[in-house]
Amino acid sequence: MISLQAGIRNELLLMLYRRKTMIFFVVAAVLPILLAMSFHALQPVIGLVAASPSFPIQMLELYTLFMIPLFLFLAIADLFPQEVSARTMKLTLLRPITRFRAFAAKLLALGMAIAAMLVLLAIVSLLCHAAIGTSDGGSIDLIGYGKAYIAGFLSMWALSSLFVFFAQFFRSASGFLIFSIILYAVAKVFPFFVKGFSSFSLTSYTDWYLVWLSHSVSAGSLLTSTLFVISGMILFFSLGYLMFERKEV
């Protein structure tokens, strides 16, 4: 257990020391403020609500669709292919830590980064609403929003396990980055042509948090979709681990 903790600390520190992680977090924090301010300024022209009570959810939509996946691709590229090509993976594995724990530490660190980003987003968007928002259009349902954010976190973590699996095939960070962006775009467009694809694709669960905002969604479909996300996460975690285990570094 201590080695796992040390592993997580190691990965988190590595992430923190990278400048792009910090830049990403700053952008993630500033973007909602910028959007709210520009909506506010453009109010007379387009008449859009600057920061309605649903602002945190509208921002969540934007983040689970673009920001967090992009951040994930960058972070995963650094965690796996980059470490292999820079030969720093060896240093990690020379420590008294099993491969499983090293692998798990990387995924847990990713999960923590996603959680941190979502918490940051929730705080910033709530502050935006408090500062320049209107109270028109209902109040903030904190419990509902909390559930939606947790669901958003789960789907993002499952998505990260999918891309960690694909990262095992790459030895160069830029190659993986390009591949993952293209794969994500294709997986997002595919359901427009093929019926039923979205039922089997983790990428179509980026807006899964929506299901948790309603009272009319049946418990059965909540259960099956939750099972799908969790089992997808376990499946790609295990497959990724199998590849990682046999990897020559």
């Binding site: 039922s199 089997f200 099956t224 099972l227 799908f228 089992s231 295990s238 681990y241 199998l242």
Partner: peptide, 29 residues
């Protein structure tokens, strides 16, 4: 033991993913 664990996890989660995916697709919603 490790192989058994990973293999089991893959088999179970794969099966669950398939069935829940099929339910979502068939969805008599």
């Amino acid at each position: 033991k490790k192989w058994l664990m990973t293999g089991g996890a893959i088999a179970v989660s794969g099966a669950v993913m398939l069935t829940t995916g099929l339910t979502a697709m068939a969805g008599t919603s």
